[in-house]
Simulated assay, not measured.
Amino acid sequence: MAMEAEQIETLIRDGIPDAEVEITDLAGDGDHYAARVTAESFRGMPRVKQHQAVYAALGGRMGGTLHALQLTTAVPNKE
């Protein structure tokens, strides 16, 4: 069963309330997505911990309902 991009975005925003989320469907099949997640709460956090926070927000759907996610995380630029 495929996931909609909006579902992924909602799950991430619910789990990481300060996140800005951009989702791209890479293959048009609802199974292969790219996500760019930018959040101030990632500041000072190693990249692996940032990714773990996103995976936690997805609630175990990786590898099941969500087949593949190309993940990029970042902190906002300070202005």
Rank of each mutant, 00 (worst) to 15 (best):
D18E: 09
T38V: 13
T65K: 15
G44I: 01
P46F: 05
E79W: 05
A56K: 14
E9G: 07
E22H: 10
T38W: 02
G63M: 11
P76N: 01
V48M: 14
F42E: 04
N77S: 14
T73I: 00
Q52N: 06
D18T: 03
A35S: 05
K78L: 12
V75W: 04
T10C: 06
G59V: 03
D29V: 11
V37N: 00
A39I: 00
K78V: 11
T65G: 15
Q52W: 02
T73Y: 00
E6N: 10
D29A: 11
H32Y: 11
E4F: 11
R13V: 00
I16P: 08
G44C: 04
D31R: 15
I8G: 01
S41F: 06
Q52C: 01
H32R: 14
H67F: 01
T24I: 12
E40C: 00
A19N: 06
A53C: 08
A39H: 03
M1A: 15
T10Y: 11
T73M: 03
G15W: 02
E9T: 04
T24D: 09
V54M: 05
A68F: 06
I23Q: 06
I8F: 02
I12P: 04
G28P: 07
K49Q: 13
M62C: 12
G30E: 09
E9I: 01
A27T: 08
I8S: 01
E20P: 09
R43V: 04
D31C: 14
A2H: 15
A5K: 10
R36K: 13
A39E: 03
V37E: 03
G15Q: 02
L69Y: 10
R47G: 04
V21C: 09
Q7E: 14
P17G: 00
G63L: 09
T10V: 10
S41N: 02
L58K: 03
A68Y: 07
L58P: 05
V48Q: 13
A27M: 13
G30S: 11
A53H: 09
M62Y: 12
